[in-house]
């Protein structure tokens, strides 16, 4: 089978379609990007840097990194484990497992935060016990990690499952007949074959973990300098009309998003064959 190559638009319809696609993408995507930068640097470089030098903002950056540093490895390990059992074995209930795995994609981030309040909040299932034992989950780091983990749970698994299904089990079975044991099979045969897809999944998972707003907002309690991540700090600053500071923080996250996009594009371009063919986000 041969697919049609792209060509320069020649007809009026071609020009029209191309122009309208570009115009629409400008209105919806490019202009908002431009707004972030112009607003952040409205007063020049000095106010921009001053805004970022705020202790609450620095604390927010640190917390954002910390939450991602805990959540992403958890979901990466889960992603590998679940992809291994789903793609390497036949068992009853696999479809159900896949459905549950996809749930976080369809549940509102706000609900992803709410459920942890219902479990661990003061009036939650385990709220009383937690209070008695002086353990804080909600309105503290553990709750924010849990909310982030729930929202970003499918990212790594969803990258690995289609790829590992495509690759099949032949190579691993061959390794077993050649005498390879347990982890040898995984580290010597599976991991080298999935490493770029794993990196891709981790990249998307990290971007989402650092940018998550709704779920974290619900469980954080918005304690400045303590439980504010960068996205929450942006909200607070914006609502207080500290526009430059808000957009300065936003520019950091935008930079992160652009780096993510560049890495993602490079990965897709360089290792197309080693990433899953069909991708769902």
């Amino acid at each position: 089978m041969r697919s049609r190559p792209a060509e320069t638009p020649k007809t009026v319809a071609g020009f029209g379609l191309t122009a309208s696609a570009i115009l629409w993408m400008d209105l919806i995507i490019v202009l908002p990007l431009a707004v972030v930068l112009t607003e952040a640097f409205k007063g020049g470089l000095a106010p921009y840097l001053a805004a970022l030098d705020d202790p609450d903002t620095i604390a927010a950056i640190q917390l954002t990194l910390l939450v991602a540093a805990i959540s992403v490895p958890l979901n990466a390990v889960f992603g590998i484990g679940s992809a291994w059992c789903i793609t390497r074995f036949e068992f009853k209930g696999k479809g159900l497992l896949l459905t549950i795995l996809d749930l976080p994609f369809t549940i509102s981030p706000v609900i992803c935060g709410l459920v942890w309040i219902l479990l661990f909040g003061t009036q939650g299932w385990f709220g009383g016990w937690l209070r008695d034992h002086d353990v804080k989950i909600v309105f503290a780091l553990p709750g924010m990690v849990l909310a982030t983990v729930l929202v970003t749970l499918p990212f790594v698994a969803r990258e690995l499952i289609p790829l590992m299904t495509d690759q099949g089990t032949d190579e691993e079975v061959a390794a077993v007949t050649l005498g390879a044991r347990g982890w040898d099979v995984f580290f010597r045969v599976t991991l080298p074959n999935i490493k770029w897809a794993l990196l891709y999944g981790v990249l998307l998972c990290t971007a989402r973990a650092m940018g998550e707003f709704g779920a974290v907002s619900v469980v954080s309690g918005h304690i400045r300098g303590l439980t504010n991540t960068l996205p929450l700090q942006i909200e607070i600053l914006y609502n207080q009309y500290e526009t430059i500071a808000a957009f300065a923080c936003a520019s950091i996250l935008t930079g992160l998003a652009i780096v993510t996009l560049i890495l993602k594009t490079v990965l897709e371009w360089r290792f197309a064959g080693e990433l899953a063919a069909h991708r769902r986000h």
Partner: peptide
């Protein structure tokens, strides 16, 4: 996908 929703919101 990549841009945090709060950033998109204020922009």
């Amino acid at each position: 996908f990549a841009l945090p929703t709060a950033v998109a919101g204020i922009a």
